[in-house]
Write a protein that binds this DNA or RNA. Structure first.
Lengths: 203, 203
DNA sequence: CGATTAACATACAGGCTGCATGCATGCAAC
DNA sequence: GTTGCATGCATGCAGCCTGTATGTTAATCG
């Protein structure tokens, strides 16, 4: 009766089910929000039951974490594809930022990665995910620019976090309907300031 | 029997009850989180019942909004008290930032204003609250500095948002145990960069 | 081919939210 | 001042959700 569906191994079956759950959860978490989406709705949308969900994920939070992790990975991939070569380290940073903002245009990413993720999983877990995917390229870019003497030397990790937060906010603001070009200019100004600001470095 | 409690007018009674609910909710939202705190626990902690809560607030979100609003107001007040006079516009910005970070040291404020608030109330409502209390001073400071020619001219509103986000992230990072001084330096570097970076201002 | 384990569905317990109902007290008008 | 209404608040209820325990089918392995 179930020829094509029963022919898959346990391994494939697991992968497929997890995939369906993550996809359905992603869809609903984006459309509504994590809090306003119930597990019954998720599994209904995935064509499964809550039994499958709680078999593969410890709880609802773990499902969100899987969704977030995958999304962060995807964003990192798009950024790396977008910014390969750059004239100068500073230009590389600005280009990377632009690629990040472009990636965050994908609907729902801001909600997943910047709102629900931090609130539900906590900033610690989000930082850990971020450092593996999102902020990694930014951090490397800043380190390279510092080594090259293109920007003033500042504490690397805090600066990475601060700039990353500025990028995040820019993504949110743009999605909220603000002037994207103005945001890009402000962001570029912030970065360029790092390169020129060697005057006040007497700390 | 209830002499001192029955002697208050309806007006006072309302104020007092709302106050108790907000205080209890604040305490628990900070200790745990918004999501993990139930209304039964809140009213128990306040010595009331859920009837009182839902009489004064439309729903649990409205209670959080009241808590957040009050907290943002308090932060703004502390900042204004902390930074009165400043030598230069740029120094005023840095001092203001330092005052903000100091205010955000108060336990739980980061969770209320930077995590649960945006996630539950949505960024639109939070932006509205922020623009009335928190970011207002920052925005005015940036505008003044631009008028004085102390920093390069960039789109004001986006820049305010971006810098505000950097401040927020600094507060979170510091609370997470990072080196506070390094965060302060990175933040100051970001701001000072705006003042020196007149090279790329060909806009 | 029998036994074990994994994948999944179903049923259940506890808790929570929001509302509707009910009571008691403050308040205003006559 | 007492009559009537509105306000402040407590209690009870309906519906939903989460997490878990139990049962069933299908795959894997000796």
């Amino acid at each position: 009766m179930q020829q094509e569906s029963a022919r898959r191994s346990n391994r494939e079956r697991t992968e497929e089910t997890r995939e369906k759950l993550i996809a359905a959860a992603r869809r609903l978490f984006i459309e509504k929000s994590y809090a306003e989406t119930g597990t019954p709705e998720i599994v209904r949308s995935a064509g499964l039951t809550r039994g499958a969900l709680y078999h593969h994920f410890a709880d609802k939070q773990a499902l969100l974490q899987a969704v977030v992790e995958r999304e962060a990975e995807q964003v990192a991939k798009e950024i790396e594809q977008g910014s390969d070569d750059a004239a100068s380290p500073v230009r590389a940073l600005i280009d990377g930022g632009r690629a990040y903002l472009a990636a965050m245009t994908e609907p729902g990413r801001t909600r997943l990665l910047l709102l629900d993720g931090p609130a539900v999983l906590g900033r610690a877990r989000m930082d850990e995910i971020d450092s593996r995917h999102g902020n990694r390229t930014l951090r490397e870019g800043l380190a390279a620019a510092m080594r090259a003497g293109a920007i003033r030397r500042l504490p690397l990790d805090p600066l990475t976090g601060l700039l990353g937060a500025a990028f995040d906010r820019a993504a949110l603001t743009i999605e909220a309907g603000a002037d994207a070009d103005a945001c890009h200019r402000a962001l570029a100004g912030l970065i360029e300031g790092l390169s020129a600001g060697k005057t006040g470095g007497a700390d």
